[in-house]
């Protein structure tokens, strides 16, 4: 698809807002003391607003910038953002964000897959320490005799699933309320 300067500017601006949502809402969740990350709403929303390649870049750039703004550990999870973006793009194209029930299922699937992708990084690079809620579950499981891999995977799946279901429901709510002109046509590439 040939993009003119108006399209490119629109994509750049909306992509930048999605990056800002990833970074900003992560900090807001921390301020509100919510036991979730909230750092993927922008990536999932980008799947519905801008072309796929740019939606993937939103995830990657968010994590690179998050490394400077929020915490230096964040860039290591850029791969997780790519997986989340790919799953969100597929789900949006299939129309799974049009109903609440399917959006919840998408959130659940994204949560499980992103936990599986993140767990090795959390174990090998950070000794199993991640977001406080997941870390607490990991600690309990390790104290109960589970090995670090099982503990981290279990803890991350629990927290990540809740986090991504909330993110998917919020994106569903946003897509219900956003003007149609902002949304990407589902068949576009």
């Amino acid at each position: 698809m040939q993009l003119n300067s108006m399209d490119m500017t629109r994509i750049s601006i909306l992509g930048a807002v999605c990056i800002a949502l990833n970074i900003g809402l992560n900090k807001v969740a921390a301020v509100l003391q919510l036991p979730v990350f909230m750092d993927t709403i922008g990536t999932i929303l980008a799947a519905a607003l801008i072309p796929p390649l740019f939606a993937i870049l939103v995830g990657v750039v968010s994590n690179l910038l998050g490394g400077i703004i929020t915490h230096p550990a964040i860039p290591f999870f850029a791969g997780t953002q790519i997986v989340i973006a790919l799953m969100a793009i597929y789900a949006y194209r299939r129309g799974w964000f049009e109903r609440l029930a399917s959006a919840v299922l998408v959130g659940f699937a994204i949560g499980v897959v992103s936990a599986i992708v993140s767990a090795p990084i959390a174990v090998l690079m950070f000794g199993g320490i991640t977001e406080p809620g997941a870390t607490a579950i990991n600690a309990i499981l390790m104290a109960a005799g589970q090995n670090i891999w099982t503990a981290v995977l279990s803890g991350t799946i629990i927290v990540s699933t809740i986090d991504k279901i909330i993110a998917a429901v919020i994106v569903w709510l946003l897509l219900q309320r956003l003007p149609n002109r902002l949304k990407l046509a589902r068949g576009s590439s």
């Binding site: 490119m8 500017t9 994509i11 750049s12 601006i13 992509g15 930048a16 807002v17 990056i19 800002a20 949502l21 970074i23 900003g24 809402l25 900090k27 807001v28 301020v31 740019f54 870049l57 939103v58 750039v61 968010s62 910038l65 703004i69």
Partner: peptide, 23 residues
């Protein structure tokens, strides 16, 4: 490419706006 630079610069700038607006 200019769009990539805009991604980075606006991403940082709008992040602060989002935080303020949410507050």
């Amino acid at each position: 490419p200019m769009w990539s630079i805009l991604f980075i610069s606006q991403g940082v700038a709008v992040g602060a706006i989002v935080e303020r607006r949410v507050a």
